[in-house]
Design a protein around this nucleic acid. Structure first.
Length: 479
RNA sequence: CGGGGCGUAGCUCAGUCUGGUAGAGUACUUGCUUUGGGAGCAAGGUGUCGAAGGUUCGAAUCCUUUCGCCCCGACCA
């Protein structure tokens, strides 16, 4: 059978992924190294993801703000571990003016900045500086801020959505009076991310704390949401950090307590990015293209008129317009594809773009007062005839079921992707046999040189400790 | 930054070894016939051959320099 995307997942997973992004019209490589242009359809998905996340962030008492893109180099220098973590991938702004020299436009040597700026790879430092002024009294705490911005990390090996030099994200930064509150907050946002992935993206994740080896630069504790892709590799989709007093001390974030003493505060930071879209794609899609959970589908329903040129077009338009309006009235995102294309081409177009429900309306349907409807996740076998009197109700049901079934399918697959191993012998032989997925093993089993050798040999890493029993660690290959 | 590869039509690439003045497929436009899971025929437009310099009567092709990109590592949301 012919598939819309070649190669298939089985043939070459990463090439399938790249080609799907192009076929679904989500994004393309930009003429800037390591950067991508997110196209309107891809951005529409991101906006839905973002809006839902933003709602949840605000519901947890966080306010949005916006800090500068450029960070003075000395800010960066204040937190030693942080510098070590990001110095290797910083884009630096050194001049403020261009000049035509020898017929070529280039930075004017005269305009060299005495203090260069770094394009933010993350904003702990510049937000820390502001917090040091905004936090004076225990009454100013907790202070909870978030921003939706783009950041830049000069990545060595970019891949669309998964790792681009510039990416869009939200970064939350909270300050508390006590360590207990800060740690609780980091865990709370961690849980919020897990709930979001499950309820909105229909992805169940492996949740847990990063081991010290994998922790964020400058954090005491890092909590991560790890997704399992169809090829068994891990994707870190959201992290939440308990930063202890590292940044509070580096930036002088102090408050005067009820006891009259000046005390350093405790901070957290937490983020999710457009990488989630990569996870969404690699989790749900198939060899015919994208499959979107209804919650983040720009068009939940596409209505395709089937015309042969001999039917009454205006009657059909009227028939379809009613259906369209009915769905709109029920807040269902619907698109009528009246474009001048052959109907078979339209169908493939929307299959590739992952529209949850395709509705076909032709002369046959009009005569019978019905529509033909097909679910994207189940394909042709789910094709059904729906009477128009039950239309919006059936559509709502199918969308709900699809959202639910997609999650169930991922949960089912994840079960098969997570393997318990008792020791390094078992881990070694499982990997040698080409088993893919996550391996759950006692953390103490990994504290030795033999495990280091296995990491090297199979390109695996510790993903996180198991939230349900932190003496166990999940090990996997990752993106 | 190490190891490999590639820059030629919107896209994918052939042509380079052996120098002779630009090709294919696809996409696009138009027309006719088609149309319920990717249609067929016909006609049509498309290039500073990555850039600069050199050799030559003549360079996509040979030489030198340079820029950029992709893949595999090290790094990461």
């Amino acid at each position: 059978m012919k598939t819309a995307i070649t190669p298939t997942r089985a043939e070459n997973f990463s090439e399938w992924y790249q080609n799907l992004i192009v076929a679904a019209d989500l994004a393309e490589n930009a003429p800037v190294r390591g950067c991508m242009t997110i196209k309107p359809y891809g951005w529409a998905i991101w906006e839905l993801m973002r809006d839902e996340m933003d709602k949840r962030i605000k519901a947890s008492g966080v306010q949005n703000a916006n800090f500068p893109l450029l960070i003075p180099i000395e800010f960066f220098n204040k937190e030693a571990e942080h510098v070590a973590g990001f110095a290797k991938e910083a884009a630096v702004v050194t001049h403020y003016r261009l000049k035509m020299i020898d017929g070529k436009l280039q930075p004017d040597p005269e305009s060299k900045l005495t203090e260069p700026y770094i394009i933010r790879p993350t904003s702990e430092t510049i937000i820390g500086e502001a917090m040091s002024r905004w936090v004076q009294s225990y009454r100013d705490l907790p202070l909870k801020l978030n921003q939706w911005v783009n950041v830049m990390r000069w990545e060595m090996r970019p891949r669309m959505f998964l790792r681009t030099s510039e990416f869009n994200w939200q970064e939350g930064h909270n300050v508390f009076a006590t360590h207990e509150e800060a740690n609780e907050d980091a865990r709370k946002m961690h849980k919020m991310y897990g709930d979001y992935m499950r309820d909105v993206l229909a992805i169940s994740c492996v949740m847990g704390e990063k081991t010290p080896e994998e922790r964020f630069a400058g954090a005491d504790h890092t909590y991560t949401v790890e997704q399992i892709m169809q090829d068994g590799k891990a994707l870190q989709a959201g992290t939440s950090h308990d930063l202890g007093q590292h940044f509070a001390k580096s930036f002088g974030i102090q408050y005067l307590g009820t006891d009259g003493k000046l005390t350093h505060a405790w901070t957290t930071s937490w983020g999710t990015s457009t990488r989630m879209m990569g996870g969404l794609i690699m989790t749900h899609s198939d060899d015919d293209g994208l499959v979107l959970p209804p919650a983040v589908a720009p068009h939940q329903v596409v209505i395709i008129p089937i015309t042969r040129g001999d039917e009454n077009i205006s009657a059909m338009n009227e028939y379809i317009a009613k259906l369209e309006q009915e769905l709109r009235n029920h807040n269902i995102r619907v698109l009528v594809d009246n474009s001048d294309m052959r109907s078979a081409d339209k169908m493939w177009k929307w299959i590739k773009r992952g529209v949850p429900l395709r509705v076909e309306v032709g002369a046959r349907e009009m005569d019978d007062g019905v529509v033909t409807m097909t679910r994207r996740d189940l394909g042709k076998s789910s094709r059904e005839t729906v009477a128009i009197k039950d239309f919006s109700e059936t559509v709502s049901h199918r969308l709900d079921s699809m959202q639910h079934d997609m999650l169930a399918a991922v949960q089912e697959r994840n079960k098969k992707m997570i393997h318990d191993v008792a020791n390094l012998d078992e881990l070694d032989s499982a990997l040698a046999n080409g088993e893919i997925g996550f391996f759950r093993i006692k953390y103490t089993e990994t504290q030795n040189e033999r495990f280091d050798a296995l990491m090297e040999k199979y390109k695996i890493t510790r993903r996180c400790l198991d939230d349900k029993d932190p003496t166990f660690v999940f090990v996997a290959k990752s993106y």
